[in-house]
């Protein structure tokens, strides 16, 4: 009969070096059941993965679920991690994007075509006029991002917000570098048109409002 035994935990001297180890070394240790190594990976990447998911999904609870699923997949595969050229971080972004895109598709199926994805930030400022005020710009940006096609939004989130290189973003999205640039260009064009036309509309509304005073 085959025996399954727990892999021994690393000794104290190895634990001390957790903060200096590469992601790939930590992943290998996680595979052996080293929870300190898992903690180090969470400390390094949870914020960025969560922020990515938040900007893709637009709400905290969904972003936390997506981050949870992303790390679950990391834990599942940690013992088999073999970094042949790919960075663990890029792989994490790729998983996070897949999780988010799946969630968005499920969400879309549940909503009628007439409805749009409601972002928390957009909901906070229902009045169009409010959006023109300096600190409300982000609500308009959130709404404009939410209206983008999913892969364009993903490209903006990875390249602009997470500051991935075009090569890493291409790996995370499983497309060519040229495709990433195309997604980014189209996304930025749409965002600029939406935000500028919105601003013009709001300015126009504000002028009418002032004239009626």
């Amino acid at each position: 009969m085959r025996e399954y035994t727990a892999r021994p935990e690393r000794n104290a001297s190895a634990v001390v070096s957790v903060g200096e180890e590469s992601d790939e070394e930590l992943a290998s240790r996680v595979g052996g059941g080293d929870r300190l190594a898992a903690g180090a990976l969470v400390a390094r990447h949870a914020d960025r993965i969560f922020a990515t998911c938040y900007r893709m999904l637009g709400e905290r609870a969904a972003a936390e679920d997506a981050a949870q699923e992303t790390f679950m997949r990391l834990w599942k595969h940690a013992s088999r991690w073999r970094p042949r050229g790919a960075k663990l971080e890029t792989w994490l972004y790729r998983i996070a994007m897949n999780v988010c895109l799946d969630m968005l598709r499920r969400r879309k199926r549940m909503m009628s075509n007439a409805e749009t994805v409601a972002f928390e930030r957009a909901d906070e400022t229902p009045s169009a006029l409010e959006r023109i005020e300096a600190n409300q710009t982000r609500a308009a940006v959130a709404a404009a991002l939410a209206a983008l096609p999913e892969r364009q939004r993903a490209a903006i989130v990875l390249c602009h917000y997470q500051e991935l290189s075009n090569i890493d973003a291409a790996a995370a999205l499983d497309v060519s570098v040229e495709a990433v640039e195309s997604l980014l260009s189209r996304a930025r064009r749409s965002l600029r048109e939406k935000l500028l036309s919105q601003r013009d509309e709001l300015l126009e509304g504000a002028r009418h409002g002032a004239a009626n005073l």
């Binding site: 399954y4 727990a6 892999r7 021994p8 935990e9 996680v30 595979g31 052996g32 059941g33 929870r35 898992a38 903690g39 969470v42 400390a43 949870a46 969560f50 936390e64 981050a67 949870q68 790390f71 679950m72 834990w75 940690a78 013992s79 088999r80």
Partner: peptide
């Protein structure tokens, strides 16, 4: 709290080895 939940599901020493 969410970070703690991420960590709570990390494998323990009984995970099958490579």
């Amino acid at each position: 709290a969410a970070k703690a939940r991420l960590l709570a599901r990390a494998p323990t020493g009984s995970t099958p080895s490579l």
